[in-house]
């Protein structure tokens, strides 16, 4: 079964040890997805698998067979217009070195969908009811799997707040 990457079908690698991250970067030359720790601790390699955020470093490429992968290269519009969150990162200084940014953006796009579904987080007071309001605390908890070594977290949270406000309007 092929893997669909940003709407293009690609074959799974022959060597079962190849991670989805290495498939993207080394085989397909989609170098937007970054390799930070390569052990599931930093979130830089976050991509969307069937719409859900996952770590591509701990996913074997073979596990993605028959599934849809979306990377940072597939986030902007067809004519190259930036996604609302990409614009937000620019406007709110959501980055310094930029290495964690592709993972942050993929992660936050999926996070917005989780919020829309009403999924609770660890800091949601009423687990059964789900999040009543999208507080900064909620956003920080939900984005805790994406580290930013430069410390641009305040700008990242502001960019996400702007996206949520714009898409809710």
């Amino acid at each position: 079964m092929p893997i669909r990457v940003n709407d293009t079908e690609v074959p799974a690698p022959e060597d079962a040890r190849v991670s989805l991250l290495d498939l993207l970067r080394e085989h397909l030359h989609l170098t937007g997805t970054k390799k930070g720790c390569d052990q599931g601790a930093c979130g830089a390699c976050t991509v969307l698998l069937d719409g859900n955020r996952v770590l591509s470093c701990l996913t074997l490429a073979a596990q993605a067979e028959g599934r849809e992968v979306r990377t940072i290269e597939g986030i902007a519009g067809a004519a190259g217009e930036l996604h609302v969150l990409q614009r937000g990162f620019v406007e709110h200084d959501g980055l310094q070195c930029g290495y964690c940014t592709p993972g942050q953006i993929c992660s936050a796009i999926a996070m917005a969908e989780e919020l829309r579904r009403g999924d609770p987080s660890y800091v949601t007071p009423d687990i059964a009811a789900g999040p009543a309001a999208v507080t900064r605390e909620e956003i920080r908890e939900r984005m805790s799997g994406n580290l930013c070594r430069c410390g641009a977290h305040n700008g990242i949270v502001e960019a996400i707040e702007a996206m949520l406000a714009e898409t809710a309007a």
């Binding site: 996952v54 687990i127 789900g130 799997g145």
Partner: peptide, 29 residues
């Protein structure tokens, strides 16, 4: 499992424990 309505309503300890673990990305996997 953490998002399942019956788990959240009847066994909130389980939902909260799941949500305390790892990150959203890892919980999806």
């Amino acid at each position: 499992l953490a998002a399942h309505p019956l788990v959240r309503r009847r066994y909130p300890v389980l939902a909260r424990a799941l949500l305390a673990g790892a990150s959203a990305q890892i919980r999806n996997m």
